[in-house]
């Protein structure tokens, strides 16, 4: 079955992305806030197999990056010593998933050399680590906001479709309002009315709630349609004649029909909401520095000299694109399966 294999491949890709982000502390070699004032805007470190003398090595290695004495922000490799890349090395302490303290990292090199897979930013912070940690914020915001949207949509859609009448009428008019507005305008407007100077945790939760609330309308409409179709089935009437409560009917006979749509909607919404969080942080309306949200990482590009001179500053965008790509693939696969299932 081709569509099943497609789903498995798409989900596996997505899972591995999420796993890397979830275990950021382990995968990242350095602390995302650790600054190296001697290495601002260092380019990505080249991982080599062939040394300066032309010998091939089985274990990949790097050369230490040193600042060129004559230039600013210019670097070269010091070819004197090879620093092999080791797996499971002991490095700076971190908390795995924010809970278990550990010092073991997936890979690393011996000091004084440092390995910057995605270069460094203006404070010399390792971008690879920052991208992974930033993903924790951006992707978590996207996931939680999606949960909020779907929960709201499920609630309103169910009530609207199940009880109908004026409730339905007013809910659907309101949904139309939310659907017709350009989402970014709405997002900025709502954000404008909310406090700016609050703690990072509060800001994060605020972002989640605002982004999630703005997107309730589409899932609500879709779920309402399904509930409308399901509640007029004869088996629902039969269930009523057995004395079933509305709650029982919703739970047993109506909600199971919405799972497919919920899953597809989730796969579509998560990347949109990740982008929404990134956009807000980019504008400075979300989490602020030194929190490494992807929006904050990308904000560096707003300086034209950074944009042109240091191409690796684009790499956070690559992470964003990969996540979007993964989710869209999953959404497509789900959609195809839903279509083929219904016919």
């Amino acid at each position: 079955m081709a569509s099943k294999r497609k789903i498995v491949a798409a989900v596996m890709f997505l899972l591995s992305l999420h796993l890397a982000i979830l275990l950021a502390g382990f995968v990242a070699p350095y602390d995302p806030a650790a600054q190296n004032r001697d290495f601002p805007f260092a380019p990505p470190t080249r991982v080599r197999f062939v040394d300066a003398a032309g010998h091939l090595h089985a274990r990949p290695f790097i050369y230490q990056c040193v600042a060129r004495p004559d230039g600013i922000y210019e670097y070269e490799e010091s070819r004197e010593l090879r620093y092999p890349v080791h797996l499971f090395v002991v490095g700076p302490e971190y908390k795995l998933v924010g809970l278990w303290p550990s010092r073991v990292h997936l890979f690393g090199v011996e000091a004084p050399a440092q390995i910057f897979l995605a270069g460094t930013d203006n404070y010399g912070r390792d971008q690879f680590s920052r991208i992974l940690y930033g993903g924790q914020i951006s992707v978590a915001a996207g996931l939680l906001a999606t949960g909020t949207s779907l929960l709201l949509g499920l609630l309103i859609g169910c009530v609207s479709g199940f009880y109908g009448k004026w409730l339905d009428e007013s809910a659907m008019r309101l949904a139309e309002l939310f659907l017709v507005l350009p989402w970014l305008y709405l997002l900025l407007a709502v954000r404008a009315f909310l406090p700016l100077h609050i703690s990072p945790t509060q800001t994060f939760l605020l972002l989640v709630v605002v982004i999630g609330t703005i997107g309730w309308a589409r899932p609500a409409r879709l779920i309402r349609g399904i509930v409308l179709g399901a509640k007029n089935r004869k088996y629902v009437t039969a269930s009523r004649s057995f004395g079933a409560s509305d709650y029982y009917i919703l739970r047993r006979h109506v909600l199971p029909h919405t799972y497919g749509i919920l899953l597809t909607q989730a796969a579509l919404l998560v990347p949109q909401y990740v982008i929404a969080e990134v956009t807000l942080s980019f504008f400075g309306l979300g989490l602020s520095e030194p929190m490494p949200s992807w929006g904050n990482l990308l904000a560096n590009l707003q300086q034209y000299n950074v944009l042109v001179s240091y191409w690796w500053m684009f790499l956070p965008a690559l992470a964003l694109v990969l996540v979007s790509f993964g989710y869209l693939n999953v959404a497509n696969a789900f959609h195809e399966r839903l279509q083929s299932g219904s016919t």
């Binding site: 990347p271 980019f282 990308l298 590009l301 034209y304 684009f314 965008a317 964003l320």
Partner: peptide, 15 residues
């Protein structure tokens, strides 16, 4: 192209 957000597109073009 669908998975490349505007934010990334515009920076690419500006570059």
């Amino acid at each position: 192209l669908l998975s490349v957000p505007e934010l990334v597109l515009v920076f690419g073009l500006l570059y």
